[in-house]
């Protein structure tokens, strides 16, 4: 069976449109899921038992059930409560919720890896717990959590294919449609497989460069901005 290259030309634009939606969904899910992950990580360390319990329940629920079932639950159950959202938005919410549970565990482990003396020096100098977390602890977790957060991001890209099951017109859904119209499954799926690979390879390469920058930091003169967001902005601008 030879490749029918005309499929790429005729249906390429449609598949690329699906690719674009996949990227948008993953980016939005990250923007939502990462802060949620930080909140859940801090929640699991709260002094208040209720908050600790709620955060733990959230993390365990989303970590221990199949992503497809989570998507179905959100998509088919929310309307019963009068919440009708477009499939794309449900997709973003589900992906963010799923991702944040894993992000929370990674961030929590990162916080616990920061030596206790760092909390103590921050508190003893007069910072509140929140100020210490923001200025001293979370920035130090960054080099620790970056590799596992990166892995999690790669798997979010792949999990987003599941959203085809609730009619989100992302890349996988588009490919299914294309092969239905052309009866050429190989062309349709090899095309999107390459796109998934290219996207994840790009993300992985970018993250490796960022990790190297963080590791090199000890050898260069310092610059002033050092909050997590400051570093995020700084390295994205470069």
């Amino acid at each position: 069976m030879g490749l029918d290259f005309s499929i790429f030309i005729d249906y390429g634009p449609r598949l690329l449109l699906g690719f674009w939606l996949t990227i948008k969904i993953v980016v939005l899910a990250l923007l939502l899921g990462l802060p949620l992950g930080v909140i859940m990580a801090l929640g699991r360390r709260s002094r208040l038992r209720t908050i600790r319990f709620a955060a733990t329940a959230y993390v365990e629920l989303f970590r221990n059930t199949p992503f497809m079932i989570q998507v179905f639950l959100i998509y088919y159950v929310l309307p019963f409560y009068g919440i009708r959202l477009p499939a794309e938005q449900v997709g973003v919410l589900a992906l963010a919720a799923f991702g944040s549970a894993y992000f929370a565990e990674v961030i929590r482990a990162g916080i616990e890896a920061v030596p206790k003396g760092q909390f103590e020096s921050a508190r003893s100098i007069g910072m509140t717990d929140a100020q210490a977390m923001k200025n001293i602890i979370l920035p130090q977790t960054l080099p620790i959590i970056l590799p596992p957060l990166g892995n999690q991001t790669l798997s979010l890209v792949k999990e987003s294919a599941i959203l085809s099951t609730i009619t989100v017109q992302e890349m996988t859904m588009t490919a299914i449609r294309v092969q239905g119209e052309t009866f050429r499954p190989f062309e349709a799926f090899i095309f999107i497989a390459l796109l998934y690979w290219a996207l994840n390879e790009t993300i992985a390469t970018g993250l490796r460069a960022w990790e190297r920058r963080l590791a090199r930091r000890g050898k260069r003169p310092a610059n002033a901005s050092a909050s997590v967001m400051g570093r995020l902005k700084g390295s994205m601008g470069r």
Binding site: G117, S121, G126, Q140, A222
Partner: peptide, 28 residues
Amino acid sequence: NPDLARQRAKMGMVFQNFNVWPHLSVLE
């Protein structure tokens, strides 16, 4: 917490293993 932090700010503390903040420059 904020009340405690305010009182702590009046007391400098120096630790056996320094506990300088490694992600910030000396000046910072």
